[in-house]
Write a protein that binds this DNA or RNA. Structure first.
Lengths: 117, 117
DNA sequence: TCCTTGGATAGATCATCGTCTAAACAGTGA
DNA sequence: TCACTGTTTAGACGATGATCTATCCAAGGA
């Protein structure tokens, strides 16, 4: 569980899309985040974790929702983790994941169109 | 300028991610949209169009902002168009693009975390 | 009609991504 | 220590995607 720097990098990002053009750096950062969410499995994983009781879910809960092998789920979780969208914490046998709501909120803010006509 | 059905398909989508798990269909639709935005060039294109005076921009305005060939820009615009994020309209010599704010707003709503604890 | 300019399409190439199997690592309990 | 379960890593393979060059289509003016 190492590189979650994108979370920090997001600090600089951004005014709403409809407000002013993105710089190349901002666009690259955002694209990285959107790419992490640009997969049906990862989107469902994210919503499964975010909406789970207590705001966290263990991998065992997640795997059952898909017809995919363990390693594939693990791969997708890694992508989400390295994008800073979720964090994982081991407690005993299981690892529990939870979302970083600030990142989601920031993304939401970038896409907002209200008051930016 | 044909298939912009995703716009319609979005009608069914969705409660905020943190509210309830996405169905497979919803996840697939959203992933399609996020994939369209998961590229720095397309993100900048989108922000350039959305923030341009009058809410629209012609391709000639857009091309200058990138060190890419015309066909490449055209390709990216096509991806955005087919995702329902933008529409193009020819007026005389030039083609003008504008964003579909509802789609952006819907995406923003899906990512919102307020009131979904 | 022909030429010029704005923009899209076709087809190729190279890189990235999603998935798998096999193997390794991390805890738990006997 | 060994065996068992949960999870990640490594490496491979096929599919998808970003970009290019070459070509084509649409509109305007001579």
């Amino acid at each position: 569980m190492s590189k979650q720097l994108p979370l920090v990098a997001m600090d600089a990002c951004c005014a709403p899309l409809a407000r002013e053009p993105l710089t190349q750096d901002q666009a690259a950062q955002l694209a990285h985040l959107f790419k992490a969410m640009a997969d049906p499995v990862r989107l469902r994983l994210l919503s499964l974790i975010a909406s789970h009781a207590g705001g966290e879910a263990c991998v065992c809960d997640l795997t059952d929702a898909f017809e995919l092998t363990g390693p594939t789920i693990s791969h997708h979780l890694k992508v989400l983790r390295e994008s800073g969208l979720i964090t994982g914490e081991r407690r005993g046998t299981w690892i529990y994941y939870r979302v970083h709501p600030e990142v989601l909120a920031r993304l939401s803010a970038v896409l907002t169109t209200t008051g930016a006509g």
